[in-house]
Simulated scan of single mutants.
Amino acid sequence: MKRMIATGFAMLALTATPALAQEAQCFQNDQFLVIAQERLDDVGANFIIRPPAKGKIACVYEERDGDRLLGEPGDPLHYEGLAGRYLVLTRSTGPQGDLVIYDLDSDLFQPLLDVRAQDEVVIADDSVTFWQQQILGTPENCPEYAEHQGYGLGSMIYEERVLDLASVTVSTTGETRCAATQ
């Protein structure tokens, strides 16, 4: 009887496992295919980067020879976009985080840009526009400072920046804003 119960639980576990798995998501342009798989036991995703698929994409997170892998436990990366050879990600477990951009053609496969930024990112074919963290907000530089304090929050000044993908240079637009922080 115990053997039958144990077998029953084993069969139930086998049939329940696929329902617990997250489906992979695929993103492709004419240069790269990115397959993202959210982690079940940790925040963030793991990524497979490979040449673009021809025809219909089998969006399955399975490593193959020649794949480049990105993501590891403890590094909460999230997909934002793919602009040419650049993979745009955010790193965050809450409201504040980082903008992380990889040049997928680079042999080093290290971030081209990794900065504290708000998660409001605009990705175009030739640029990435973002709000980079600059300095602490104060009553003098942040009109919303008292309101933020009233909610038990801090304030931070962010500056709008643009990464030009053709020249791989970051410039400022001159726009700033104050945002609440935890």
Results as ranks from 00 to 15, higher is better:
L113S: 00
I49V: 15
Q149Y: 02
L33T: 08
I101P: 02
L108S: 14
Q25Y: 00
A19Q: 11
A16T: 15
I101S: 10
E23M: 11
L82G: 08
M156A: 15
V60K: 03
T138L: 13
D98A: 03
L33R: 00
D30K: 14
E175P: 00
T90R: 07
T176D: 12
E23Q: 15
F32A: 03
S155Q: 10
A19F: 13
L33V: 04
D119T: 00
G55A: 10
I57P: 02
L82W: 04
R64Q: 14
A13Q: 07
L69Y: 04
A36D: 01
L163P: 11
C142V: 07
A24M: 05
D119K: 08
I101L: 05
G66D: 05
P18D: 00
L112T: 12
L87C: 11
A36Q: 06
A117K: 04
G81V: 10
D30A: 12
R161I: 03
R3M: 13
E80P: 05
Y102V: 01
E23H: 14
P73F: 00
L153D: 08
L87Y: 05
A146Q: 14
C26R: 04
V60M: 06
G71S: 11
L77F: 04
G94R: 15
F130R: 10
A58K: 10
Q22A: 15
E63C: 09
R161E: 14
L112Q: 13
I135A: 14
L77G: 05
P76R: 10
Q31W: 03
G66I: 05
M1Q: 14
E23N: 15
G66S: 07
K54H: 00
T17S: 09
A58V: 04
A117Y: 06
Y102Q: 01
T7C: 13
V170A: 12
L163G: 12
D41R: 10
R116P: 03
R116G: 02
L153M: 04
I5C: 12
C178E: 11
Q96A: 12
R50C: 02
R177M: 15
I157W: 13
M11W: 08
E120M: 05
R85D: 13
R39L: 02
F109G: 01
L40F: 01
P18L: 04
G71C: 01
L153N: 02
Q182E: 05
R68E: 07
E144R: 09
G74I: 12
T173I: 01
A21Q: 09
Y61A: 03
A45I: 06
T172E: 12
L87V: 11
A19K: 07
D125C: 00
A117V: 04
E120H: 11
A83F: 08
M4N: 13
Y61S: 02
R3S: 14
E120R: 14
L104K: 11
A24C: 07
A124I: 01
D75P: 08
V115Y: 06
I101M: 07
Q28F: 05
S167W: 01
V43W: 08
